[in-house]
Every structure is written in structure tokens, then in C-alpha cells.
Design a protein around this nucleic acid. Structure first.
Length: 307
DNA sequence: TTCCAGGGTAACG
DNA sequence: CGTTACCATGGA
């Protein structure tokens, strides 16, 4: 390869993304390594590897590192075309929520003793997104009412059973199953992976809606209004208030998304504020009032303390 | 064995 | 609208 910069049409080598001031790649990596059963990305040292789907083409294997205050995005299995490069950059921006200005949140958080400490301890941690809607929906539903460790195991089985594998130099990388594949499954196909019948039903149903185009990321995004997006999600079978807000938070990165019914959040609040019992919903509402507009980040930082 | 874990639906007042 | 029964599954 020596010497050449690549063809005229394809820019060779890595591409770079600017990062916001309140950004710490290591804090983000720490979050990404929270489960050994995570199969949709791989962290090695100061790098993350992730396979991304390419519209009408072979998936691309990405390597993300930090370089001189920027994010460096390298393509390991061949240089994708311009469109795929843009898509990969866009994915990374959503994955690490790069477009949000955290300075306001940090200023508000500093007013509170506990959240102020959390934002210092995990300074630069971004809300880690799940940019793909189907993946976000499935992950939320899998995680309903079971502990996170078990949820990771179920997700891994699901991905390894119905997702695409990309092998590269002794390493295997996985892509999340496509809706059109899951749409054709039966409940009994998922039971052996230890899905409950109910969850299997929810996920297959949502896959069918997505495959048919009745539900899509664009359609939800175009509703624009937070309440409308929430209502549209809750209307779907298997999605209640918690799941809707979880998806608005992780997939759409809506700063107001607030899974207030979350048991983990309740435990995090009890732990962080050293409460005797788990707080009531009203107490959490009161606690979060000063952080209005930033509920998603406040929740994410409280969750972070549970890892 | 009981209780908990990043809930949801349906039925009932 | 707020409650309550029921569903489901593994781990501590």
C-alpha cells in the first residue's frame, strides 16, 4: 500500500471527528466495558471495535480511538464508499452523543451535592446511545423486569442466533439482527434463548412493524415533539412508559427522556443520597425538578454510579 | 424458598 | 385516572 493515498473517489485512511469540550473518551470506554457479555462492540485498551451495517453492501469494521483531542475512525476491512463513511461518522456522533453541549447540565448539576460529585467523578462521560431503533427497542424489552447481567446474556444469544457475524483477524464481530429476519420468527424460536413468551411476542411484533415500514426511526423523529414521540411509542404493544422513555433516551438521545419508573434509578437514588428506603416516585420527581430538561443525563450519571 | 431485577397488559372501580 | 392480578425467568 506504501505511498499511495488511495483512489480519486475514495478517501483513504481514517477520518476524524471533533469532540465537544466536555468529553472524556476513557469515561465513555469505561461505560462500554461494563459487561463481559456485550457482543455488539469490543473494547481493547483505548480502542473500540464495532461492525456497522452498510446499505446494500458488506458491513464495515470500525476502530475508534482518540487522537490529539479528536476521535479517529478507521475502517479495517476495506475503505467504504463516501456514503458509508458519512453513515459511520453519523453513527459515532449519535453513539457518544457528541452534539449535546453539556456545559449547562454541568452548571445545574453542580448546585446539587450528590449530582455535582457524580459529574466530577465521571466528567466527560456522554450519554452512550443506541442509535439503531430496533436494537434499542429489543434491548429495552429484553431488560424489562430482569437483572441487567441476565439481560446481556439473553441479548448475546439473540445476536449470535439471528445476527450477522463479521470475522476479522481472529476476532468475531456481530451485527444486531435485522427486523426483516426477526419478523419471520415464531415465539418458539426465541424461547430456547430464554425469552419469555411475552417478550418474544413483543419483539417479533415490533420487528414486523419495522420491516413493513409502519414504524421507523424517521417517522418517530419527524413527530419532533417529545410528548408526541412518547405517545406514539407507548401505543405500541410491549412498550409502556418506562420503555418509551428508555428508547427516547438511548436511541433519540432526547435530553428530557426520563425513565422515572426505573428500578435501577430508584436504587441509584437511594444509594447516592443514602436513603433508608427506596424513594417514592414523587420524591424522585421533586429531586429532579431542578434538572428539568436534563433528566436523561441526570439519570445516566446516577446509573453510572451503580456499575 | 422467597425476594428481587433497568416492566407490560388487562381488568376493575 | 389509580389499583390490582397475572405473566415470566434466573440469580442471590
Amino acid at each position: 500500500m506504501g505511498g499511495y493515498q488511495g483512489s480519486v473517489t475514495l478517501q483513504a485512511g481514517p477520518i476524524y471527528l471533533a469532540t465537544p469540550p466536555e468529553f472524556d473518551f476513557e469515561q465513555c470506554l469505561a461505560y462500554l466495558t461494563r459487561s463481559a457479555d456485550e457482543c455488539l462492540h469490543q473494547v481493547e485498551g483505548q480502542a473500540v471495535f464495532k461492525a456497522l451495517p452498510v446499505e446494500g453492501g458488506r458491513p464495515t469494521l470500525c476502530k475508534l480511538t482518540e487522537d490529539a483531542g479528536r476521535l479517529q475512525l478507521s475502517f479495517l476491512n476495506g475503505q467504504p464508499d463516501k456514503l458509508a463513511q458519512e453513515a459511520a461518522m453519523d453513527y459515532v456522533r449519535q453513539w457518544f452523543d457528541l452534539q449535546t453541549d453539556l456545559s449547562v447540565f454541568y452548571r445545574i448539576a453542580a448546585q446539587d451535592k450528590v449530582l455535582g460529585l457524580l459529574t466530577q467523578t465521571y466528567y466527560g462521560l456522554r450519554l452512550i446511545g443506541i442509535p439503531d431503533l430496533f436494537e434499542a427497542l429489543c434491548w429495552a424489552i429484553i431488560g424489562q423486569q430482569i437483572n441487567v447481567a441476565f439481560a446481556y446474556i439473553v441479548k448475546r444469544r439473540f445476536v449470535e442466533a439471528f445476527g450477522e457475524r463479521l470475522d476479522y483477524q481472529e476476532m468475531s464481530h456481530w451485527l444486531f439482527p435485522e427486523p426483516k429476519v426477526v419478523a419471520g420468527l415464531r415465539i418458539d424460536d426465541l424461547r430456547p434463548l430464554q425469552f419469555s413468551a411475552r417478550k418474544a411476542e413483543y419483539i417479533i411484533g415490533l420487528a414486523q412493524l419495522l420491516a413493513q415500514g409502519e414504524l421507523s426511526q424517521d417517522k418517530l423523529q419527524q413527530l419532533h415533539d417529545f410528548e408526541q414521540m412518547q405517545a406514539a411509542l407507548v401505543q405500541l404493544r410491549g412498550i409502556g412508559r418506562w420503555t418509551a422513555n428508555y428508547v427516547l433516551m438511548r436511541c433519540f438521545r432526547h435530553p428530557r427522556a426520563f425513565p422515572i419508573d426505573d428500578v435501577g434509578l430508584h436504587n441509584a437514588v437511594r444509594l447516592a443520597y443514602q436513603l433508608q428506603d427506596k424513594p417514592a416516585i414523587e420524591e424522585i420527581q421533586t429531586l429532579f425538578e431542578p434538572w428539568a430538561g436534563w433528566e436523561a443525563y441526570a439519570t445516566f450519571y446516577l446509573w453510572r454510579a451503580l456499575i
